[in-house]
């Protein structure tokens, strides 16, 4: 564990807590893409299959349980409890256009052609594009609530911090995982225009409103 990865995990944790607070306090899921949350649930389920078979540390297990628990709770809030406030018309990204290519790529490009490894690779590739339905929804509605912007900033920062973690681990431990790094770079790049909007607007107390 290193400071970059710890900050990354805390940023990820903060993003999930911000999202839950937004939903619980406002009792509304307006502006939140249910499809992205379903993709994140798929990512965590595929990645944490070893939750019960390989024990790394208390921290690792607790975080995995928390991530899986909260993402399914988020889906419950979106599609059941606060279903009336879910904006399905704007959450219209065709996720099959993500899942099929990512699934195919996981079969073709992986570290080892073994079931658990391919499923892990699938979760890495899927995570790098899982935010697209959410970004697409914001571009369609033309705006994002400030709290949603904070959620996205924390979520985007988590993988950017993981990139720093991989640089550190490369020099400190000689650890290098090309698949995770390339997917992490793609994932972080997807947030760049949002980061720009966040820093130029939200940091100055303005709301993010894209030219619809």
């Amino acid at each position: 564990m290193n400071i970059f990865r710890l900050c990354g995990d805390m940023s990820h944790l903060a993003a999930i807590i911000i999202l839950l607070l937004k939903m619980w306090k406002t009792r509304s899921v307006a502006g939140i893409s249910g499809k992205s949350q379903i993709l994140f649930a798929t990512v965590f389920t595929a990645r944490y299959l070893d939750l019960f078979t390989s024990f790394i540390s208390i921290y690792n297990t607790c975080m995995k349980v928390f991530f899986i628990g909260t993402v399914y709770f988020t889906i419950y809030l979106i599609y059941m409890k606060f279903k009336a406030t879910y904006d399905s018309n704007h959450d219209s990204f065709r996720v099959e256009f993500l899942i099929v290519p990512v699934g195919g790529l996981a079969f073709l490009v992986n570290h080892e052609f073994a079931p658990l490894e391919i499923i892990w690779t699938f979760s890495i590739y899927l995570e790098s594009v899982a935010i697209l339905p959410q970004l697409f929804m914001i571009s369609k509605t033309g705006e994002a609530e400030t709290i949603t912007s904070h959620y996205l900033f924390a979520l985007g920062s988590y993988r950017a911090l993981y990139l720093c973690n991989w640089i550190y681990r490369y020099y400190a431990e000689g650890f290098f995982d090309l698949i995770a790094v390339v997917a992490g770079v793609v994932q972080t790049i997807l947030y760049c225009d949002f980061f720009y909007l966040y820093i130029t607007k939200v940091m100055k107390g303005k709301k993010i409103s894209l030219p619809a």
Partner: peptide, 10 residues
């Protein structure tokens, strides 16, 4: 090879 490496990251 990374495959044998235990996945210790979240």
């Amino acid at each position: 090879e990374n495959a044998t490496l235990v996945k210790d990251e979240l």
